[in-house]
Structures are given as C-alpha cells and as structure tokens.
Design a protein around this nucleic acid. Structure first.
Length: 164
DNA sequence: TTAGTGATATCC
DNA sequence: GATATCACTAAA
C-alpha cells in the first residue's frame, strides 16, 4: 500500500518513527528504510531552516510529502521528506536502508539527485514510499553530524533505527 | 585520521 | 567578488 498525504501530515517525530521498516521505491528499485532522523521546525537549531527561510530551505516549507534533496560536502545527495503543516519547516531525513548504509550511498544507489528536489512522494511520480506489511522494532538515539546545533537540540532522541 | 568536493550563505 | 561552512564517504 502506498503511503499518502495523511501519513506525512503528522508531527515529524511520528512520521520518522513510522517510516522505519517501510519500502522506498524509485524507478523500479525497492529499498527497505532502516534509519531516519527528524528535523523539526525553525526552533530546532539542527534544522536547515532554523536561521529562516532561504532559497535552499524553501522546500522545507512546502506541503507534506514533498521531497527535499540537498547536496552535502559537494559530493553527496541527502534525501528528506517534508512532514506536518504546510508553511512549517519540518522533514524526515532518510539516513539508511538495509541495502545501503549511509545517506549519501543510499541516494547514489537509487540515482537520486537535485533533480528530485521539490518532487513529491504523494503526487503519483516515480518516487514513493510503500507499507508492505513488514514490521520491526524501532530504537531511538541521538542525532549525528549536527555539532553546530545547541547542546539541548543535540541531546534529542530524534534518530530512529530498525532493530532486527 | 584526513582529504576531497561544490552549492549556499555570509561576509566584504 | 571572496571565503567559510557543511545532516558525508573512502582511503589509510
């Protein structure tokens, strides 16, 4: 079953947790999501939009289900899915799949690039997320790679990992 | 542990 | 215009 707008139109910690174990489908490839993180609004100092709306973070303010793809370190494309209220910048970062550990490797394997930025997983395009009945335990941890955020935000248990 | 990589934001 | 920064990876 394809996940629709209602699934993503919820607070991002809930979406991030529920996305673990789901299948990410892009142009005939199917990958099991094994790790996510959530970035939740301008008040989250780890979120790209915490310093306000810019050309780069515009996508985060779009409606739930919109895909935010961003180039990191000039080399790696990172894949996020926007959640919650339109106009409120929150999103879930897809950090890893069972078949491809690491956010950069994941997009490389699928062939996702900046061309997918502003696309949508609920609009009937070539990228979507499926619930195929797979169930697993989910454990939480602190987010990684956000040393620029306040300590308070670094402590949040906003990383979700599939437990075998 | 460290180099590489390039778009974006933030300074002149 | 120039520089500093970065939600990472691969090689050592």
């Amino acid at each position: 079953m394809k996940l629709g707008y209602g699934f993503f139109y919820r607070p991002c910690p809930e979406v991030a947790r529920d996305l673990v174990g789901k299948a990410l489908v892009f142009r005939g490839q199917r990958l099991r999501i094994s790790e996510t993180e959530c970035y939740c609004g301008e008040e989250d100092t780890a979120c790209h939009a915490s310093k306000g709306r810019t050309k780069r973070t515009e996508t985060l303010y779009m409606e739930a289900g919109t895909v935010y793809v961003y180039l990191c370190y000039g080399v790696h494309w990172l894949l996020n899915i926007v959640t919650g209220e339109e106009g409120h910048p929150e999103a879930v970062l897809i950090r890893a799949c069972v078949e491809a550990p690491g956010p950069g490797r994941l997009t490389k394997k699928l062939g996702i690039t900046g061309e997918q930025n502003r696309a949508s997983v609920v609009a009937g395009g070539d990228l979507w997320v499926e619930d195929d009945g797979f169930a697993c335990n989910v454990v939480t941890d602190k987010r990684v790679g956000i040393g620029y955020a306040t300590r308070e935000d670094q402590e949040r248990q906003w990383r979700y990992i599939m437990e075998l």
